[in-house]
Design a protein around this nucleic acid. Sequence first.
DNA 1: ATTTAAAACTAACATTCGTTAGTTTTAAAT
DNA 2: ATTTAAAACTAACGAATGTTAGTTTTAAAT
Lengths: 170, 170
Amino acid sequence: MRDLASEVGMEAASLYNHIKSKEEILNEICFSLANTYSDKMDEVYPSDNTPIEKVKKLIALHIQINSMSSPLATVMNDEWRHLTEPCKSQFLDMRKRYEYLFTEIIQQGVKRGEIKAVDPRIALYTLLSSVRWLQHWYHANRDLDVNDIKENIMEMFLTGLVADQYEWKP
Amino acid sequence: MRDLASEVGMEAASLYNHIKSKEEILNEICFSLANTYSDKMDEVYPSDNTPIEKVKKLIALHIQINSMSSPLATVMNDEWRHLTEPCKSQFLDMRKRYEYLFTEIIQQGVKRGEIKAVDPRIALYTLLSSVRWLQHWYHANRDLDVNDIKENIMEMFLTGLVADQYEWKP
DNA sequence: ATTTAAAACTAACATTCGTTAGTTTTAAAT
DNA sequence: ATTTAAAACTAACGAATGTTAGTTTTAAAT
């Protein structure tokens, strides 16, 4: 709290005119971002896009948040474990629901023959964590455009690294 | 240190008969894993495998470590920032070299027409962070076999999520 | 049985941490 | 000019942290 206070030009004790506790800040950050993700899911899931389009829209949000709001993303991604009950359970419930709907989208894609028959859980977790590097990297290396990064990552995920004409299988 | 001591059935002070400091533990963990990665790179990079085979071998190690040694992986991945100089610089130099050689492999793959013309840095970071979820997830959900996970992830990265026959581009 | 070295213990240290109590300053409203 | 409420301050608290000093226990070697 002392570091945080000095960052905004205050004494640590003065912070408590504005916040209730250190924990409140953690709650604020975690649930603010969790709501952003949930809201997007509630918009995308029932829409009439194809499953692949839905995945793209959701991943785009993850890329957006991890690169543009990276300090917040870092807190939510790495520090949610320190939420206290009942907030922690509430947070985990939100995450569980988000992940469930996300796997549903993937499974629908598989069923419709648009997405390969991968394990939806593995695909989901791989997808979600693959954009995490942006949260640590983007602030230091601003020479790349977010949209370029987005397209590169999407391309990687959707059609893979192997060049189209190359026959790689053993 | 008190938690750690009680975990091994000791008083905190007794730990200091075995270690020099808390920091020493951090160094030990970080450099032990960093060496494992570096050694693998020194074995794989000069080998006569194709670039894609090299990438597969390296990613396999990341999956192995993140799933089987997940507490160590978590410390190295998340806590290396707390290394003190000169260890921190040394660690970062090792990482830089590792990442450089990894992008070289990718670039060779691109040059040889085996790998799509993605940005090698983006591909690298996406690849490396995409397997991080295993470090948090594997211990709790042991119903999946590491080798199954390995193959699923490889398939995703190499040939993408989009089903072969599906025409997805807008 | 005695010695000895490793490894446990107890007690305490100096810091750091989040927070509270009480007081003073700031600045807008009367 | 006076009042008032917001927001800063100083001082200090109790708890937790990594660590050290000094002592006792453990167990193998003599």
